[in-house]
Design a binder for these strands. Sequence first.
DNA 1: TGATGACTGTGTATCTGGTACACTGTTACG
DNA 2: CGTAACAGTGTACCAGATACACAGTCATCA
Lengths: 253, 253
Amino acid sequence: MAEKPSGSRDDARSVALLWNTRERARRGPRPALSWERIVAAAIALADAEGLEAVSMERVAERLGFTTMSLYRHVPGKAELVALMIEAAIGEPPALAAPERWRSALEEWAANLLGTFQRHPWALTATGRLRLMGPYELGWLETGLSALSATPLDPAERHAACLAVLAQVRSIAQFSLAPPKGSPGLTGERWNAETRALLRVRAERFPELTAALDALRLRDRPPAPGSGLGFVLDGIARRVAQRGARAPAGRPRR
Amino acid sequence: MAEKPSGSRDDARSVALLWNTRERARRGPRPALSWERIVAAAIALADAEGLEAVSMERVAERLGFTTMSLYRHVPGKAELVALMIEAAIGEPPALAAPERWRSALEEWAANLLGTFQRHPWALTATGRLRLMGPYELGWLETGLSALSATPLDPAERHAACLAVLAQVRSIAQFSLAPPKGSPGLTGERWNAETRALLRVRAERFPELTAALDALRLRDRPPAPGSGLGFVLDGIARRVAQRGARAPAGRPRR
DNA sequence: TGATGACTGTGTATCTGGTACACTGTTACG
DNA sequence: CGTAACAGTGTACCAGATACACAGTCATCA
């Protein structure tokens, strides 16, 4: 069967892999390969040449095994990608104490952005709704606990985290350097090419032209007036509101 | 050559297609097909069965032509998808007057969300940085002009629009109904399955467990305490700040 | 008006990539 | 020590994109 890039019947299998530690086989030859090595090779490949370069064949080649040998350790490509995501994300970071929720969230966002910058393919790979592994959910947990000392209720904390995550994804898309093989666009290049398109039609797109001309690609993410700044300010406002009235949800720690 | 799902050397070709109106051929038999019909068929197919179901063969089949006939009208699949995006997005909406920037932006977001709900595949298809067509840039222009009466400078307006867009994408991912063919996850289903995973491990993920239990999937997007609410509040704060000092950027209309 | 070349749709072939399946050899357990 | 479970291999097949050559059509121009 051909690739099913966003198939997700495999999600079930992926989940089993991500959450179950399977014990070593008791019989048979000792494995020369392991899914850990496969995943590492696949990640190295994806880092270097992008997710499209990751084929079972090329991963196997890197490892010096045949294509089909991979299937002894990984059920299929979809599951491999799921494992790659988990491995690339890794252990969630330690954040500032939740009393300073804002800097904790900023740290969280910065760490997340760092991950996306180290592994640009992860942005695409995580682009669809799918079941997650322990690391990935651990990141979410960490993000949420950055808000645990605020009077926000759990649903609001969740919304806040997802909002920050969405901003990080948006920032990442512009600031990622696409790998050599795939001539993906840089943010700079997108900007330049789009301005070129608009140059002839500046009257039809006055606001956009102005925006692209003024675009500050250099601004560090949580700068005021940036997307992340807006989100954090919005959260702050809600925190202030909630704090003024009765604290909602569980009491603050 | 096999599919290059996120190749973008083709972006150049796509742009030519999206921005240039090519005049009819002067010789030869009158075409029975047109790229408009191809795009319409492809969109219908994607709406019904998801983007993965869109293959040149299946599109051609729907039209009663051979696979290769499509290539007379569309350079390749990447370009077809680009055209699909443009067609699905369509003419940008008319918004409230920019004096009420907040409701204008809310309308903009709602319209965008509507588009994603009518064409769930568009979320994936627009997931990478790529050159855009006139409609898509028109939407951006419209979003920016919702902020044209505010004292925000052009870069801030741009950041604000992208922030709203990022929220819409995030919301869409949870609220989309995946098409029949691909067993993609609904937000509800994601929630249920993830809670099931966490049930055994509630101590490791206390915040997340609480968040998922409290999750209000029903809240309409710009509700206070939602992601979009945070963004809009954050923008409002900046507007107030800027308004208090000297207006930045071009003077308000 | 008829030749002609541009253009349309078609059929065939090739390439990439995922994966099913059967085979061979290995090793721990009974 | 036999044997069943397991590892890696080789071959085969399928889906999907697309290059290419061919045959029919029709506006234009000699």
